[in-house]
């Protein structure tokens, strides 16, 4: 790592005010230290958010059933939280509990998980210059090694969004709370991701002085059933090759609400609009397999990642069956 200044602000507003060119926010630093060591990032200063645990930590449940997850809450705290015990929130607990390793989950934060950089090996290597890292003029994965890359929603860059927490938060209808200076705002989590995730676009839409401070879950998220499933090359300690988060409402043997978001298949978390076609139907394996075929028929795989079309369908069906309790 090259030397850097370490700023320890005493408030979120001070952290936002400390932002600037060649400065980056640091939470636990799991992804950031990796980038610094690989010399793909070389900031002059880190603005340390860890001292702000009083403002940015904690899992809180209000009387009205809404839940606030501080941006510094760790993945392990989410996986173990009694406040998130409802079946409707299981997808979030499963996604965080299966991410990375115990050593990483114990420190990696929710905010860091949502805002980490992608894992494309061309982007992650200082030896390559690509359009996404700003040093090259094209995506090297198109005609290179692309077996872990995107099959949906590609603009001109084949990266996939790396967050485990994002797909379940999408299906749970989460909002993110962001502070810039003294001003706070809330927005749907979908607005955290760019409309057009081009190579020249960052993985998220936050400004340089925006501090992600919390994620909010609506009370309705706790109702119904949910599940998260992912495929990996190894059984543990591996990045997902495909992932699916599902939230279903089922009453009287009929699906009353359905929300699906895929992970690891597109430059953004990939919501599935077709989920609405499940509403009114009786949950069954046949129904879910039909939907999965329809969804993945629109995939646009490249040379080495056609397997994601088959595997992704199986993962989606597994998640739907688990969410429906079948």
């Amino acid at each position: 790592m090259n030397p850097f200044e370490l700023r320890n602000p005493d408030s979120v507003a001070a952290a936002s005010g400390a932002a600037g060119p060649a400065r980056v926010f640091k939470a636990a630093g799991i992804d950031l230290l990796d980038r610094l060591k690989e010399r793909i990032d070389d900031p002059d200063a880190l603005v340390n958010l860890l001292p702000l645990g009083a403002e940015l930590g904690g899992i809180g449940r209000s009387d009205d059933g809404t839940i606030r997850l501080g941006a510094l809450v760790t993945l392990q705290q989410i996986a173990d939280s009694d406040a998130l015990a409802a079946p409707g929130l299981r997808a979030l607990r499963e996604a965080c509990g299966e991410a990375a390793t115990p050593q990483v989950r114990s420190r990696a934060t929710l905010g860091g998980n949502l805002l980490q950089r992608n894992r494309c090996w061309y982007f992650r290597s200082a030896a390559f210059q690509c359009a996404h890292d700003g040093k090259g003029d094209r995506c090297l994965a198109w005609h290179g090694e692309n077996r872990y890359h995107a099959i949906f929603g590609v603009v001109d860059c084949l990266r996939v969004h790396p967050s485990n927490a994002a797909p379940p938060l999408m299906v749970l209808g989460a909002e993110v709370e962001v502070q810039r200076g003294e001003a706070r705002r809330r927005q749907p989590i979908a607005a955290l991701f760019p409309d057009s995730p081009a190579a020249a676009t960052a993985e998220h839409t936050l400004g340089a002085d925006d501090v992600l401070i919390a994620v909010h879950l609506p009370a309705a998220a706790a109702r119904g059933g949910s599940a998260y499933r992912e495929s990996r090359e190894k059984q543990s300690f591996d990045w997902a090759t495909t992932a699916a988060a599902v939230h279903l409402g089922v009453e009287g043997g009929r699906i009353t609400s359905a929300s699906i978001c895929l992970g690891a298949v597109a430059p953004n978390p990939w919501p599935v609009d077709d989920a609405q076609s499940l509403v009114g139907e009786a949950p069954s394996r046949e129904l879910f397999e039909q939907l999965a075929r329809r969804v993945f028929r629109r995939a646009t795989p490249t040379e080495q990642n056609r397997y994601k079309v088959e595997v992704g369908q199986a993962i989606l069906v597994d998640a739907l069956l688990a969410a429906a309790g079948l």
Partner: peptide, 19 residues
Amino acid sequence: CTVLVDGQPTNSCLMLAHD
């Protein structure tokens, strides 16, 4: 490089000493 930090298993290579 695993150590315990407040009882939690931690990669000490991914934690700044200042933290």
